[in-house]
Nucleic acid binder design. Sequence first.
DNA 1: AGATTTCTCTGACTATAGTCAGAGAATGCA
DNA 2: TGCATTCTCTGACTATAGTCAGAGAAATCT
Lengths: 322, 322
Amino acid sequence: MVGQVRRFNRTVTQRIGALSDAYLSRDRPLGQARLLWEIGPEGSDVRLLRSRLDLDSGYLSRLLRSLENDGLIVVEQSGTDGRVRTARLTARGLAERVVLDRRSDDLAASILGPLSPRQRARLVTSMAEVERLLVASEVQISACDPRHPDARFCLRAYFRELANRFDGGFDVTRSISADDEELTLPAGLVLVATLHGEPVGCGALKFHDNAPTEIKRMWVSPAVRGLGLGRRLLAALEARAAARGIPVVRLETNRALDEAVGLYRSAGYREVPAFNDEPYAHHWFEKTLDQEAASRAATEPEPPASAASPQPGPRIGDRPGG
Amino acid sequence: MVGQVRRFNRTVTQRIGALSDAYLSRDRPLGQARLLWEIGPEGSDVRLLRSRLDLDSGYLSRLLRSLENDGLIVVEQSGTDGRVRTARLTARGLAERVVLDRRSDDLAASILGPLSPRQRARLVTSMAEVERLLVASEVQISACDPRHPDARFCLRAYFRELANRFDGGFDVTRSISADDEELTLPAGLVLVATLHGEPVGCGALKFHDNAPTEIKRMWVSPAVRGLGLGRRLLAALEARAAARGIPVVRLETNRALDEAVGLYRSAGYREVPAFNDEPYAHHWFEKTLDQEAASRAATEPEPPASAASPQPGPRIGDRPGG
DNA sequence: AGATTTCTCTGACTATAGTCAGAGAATGCA
DNA sequence: TGCATTCTCTGACTATAGTCAGAGAAATCT
């Protein structure tokens, strides 16, 4: 299996990697071309560019200067915050970007060109599958304080979605509580899934002294559904619970969340009578954790207490400077 | 379709390209790491390295020097040709290469790691498919003099295979002739398929003044079978014939070559009574060329007489020097 | 209000990749 | 035998990518 992945890496970096660099950097250095592309037709804050391309601030500044000198972009003050600057394409910059666009198309066409129609269809299908799964493998799950912006983002999106999908909407205050305190160790915890630093999903545990641990706040961003992330989050939560020696977890959910209900069933949860009076719930589930299996299956193992697990970091920001 | 290929390019070059560079160039520059890898445990002639990695001779020389100074390789005279030098890994070089190997494995594992077993299986399957088709799309077909080393290589391999597969072997001199003269314009032509500069298949046309054109010497290297190359070669030959206004092509083949027989049938050839006395043939096929369809389907269009088609080049060689 | 942080920029570097011209030895060809 | 070619190497370059330290202005925190 590893062998096939390695062969793939080799073939693809040679064929795609080298070629796409060559295509893009025809009349300007690759770094500039990438930057020009990333700025996009709408323009982009410099700080965003720095984080998205992961560039040194000095280096980026110089790149911007050279594009500016070539008359491809203008860099100007951004709206409210006087420190932030925005890069925007000029007409010439837009034209250059169109050229890059054409080249990307050409590169793609040069790959499809020699193939028969049937081969093309198969290639495109397989590419979509590989891409999907590569993206899935890039999602990272880590523990996160519920007050962290990433967690906040997910929870807000979660409540918004419940409000949209439940008959008669959703009001957090009427639901059984799971506030920041209750989702912070030692009372509980939140896991956040991030993709390229952006939060794309969450799940939480709420521990009880004399009752099974509750699973709360399971949410996956619509942008990444179908990647198996829900299952992964659930497994990660179970692993965290199992690592604490917790034998049983349970949860309740609403019938409107049919994909969640399906997930719980297929993940080995069995429906049980209502164990609480959550007004928004129609189904109550429970699962007995197999300590061994949970830790084996965990792709995000419980870190040892000493080693801090990687926290979702700030998505933008230069290094601290004088 | 182009859009999916582009998305794939983007995802994959980011995930694989950047990562594999980062993994490989941990304690030494990427160029050196690539070279160290390419030299391989058996050692390798410098000229081969130059052609395989497509490096400037001066640059390569310097890279070799730095690896040599680090005690990772020795560069010594190669066997017979006093000009050629061979690079060979030392014990330390081999150890370094093992480290690179481990890193490649780690990279692959880091991709598979976060996925569920089912996802892994699907990813690997799709990767194999993408890789296969990318390789297929890298094969180039071009006209080639039958005396060119590439053509010679293919024809020799072709005869050797016939000798192995035919009941009672194969002797060219007993077979109907298709010698160099007869496969050189205007009497005929040879197409050679190359992959990364290496010949991997061939096919030929033998024109007749008052009879249908014959297709001869169809061969695909075992290393690239299953990539649809036979079909592509056949289509390219038909396109060349059609471009000359030839209405009908025909060919004969041996029953031992079952995949070829299948190809001809599925490519629209119909079996006809023996039109010659080829002693090694069991099947005779004929196809009426649809001028329009042939030129539409041709992925290797007949070049205009003025523009030279790309010829298979010498696989090794520095630029001409003083 | 004062201290701290954030954001961008400049100056001064280094490393890596790559190019070009030509020299010298070995080989192949007429 | 002589001439062209092949192969490798050195010297002298250039370009690109990237790092590091610090400065100045704006925003934020206390």
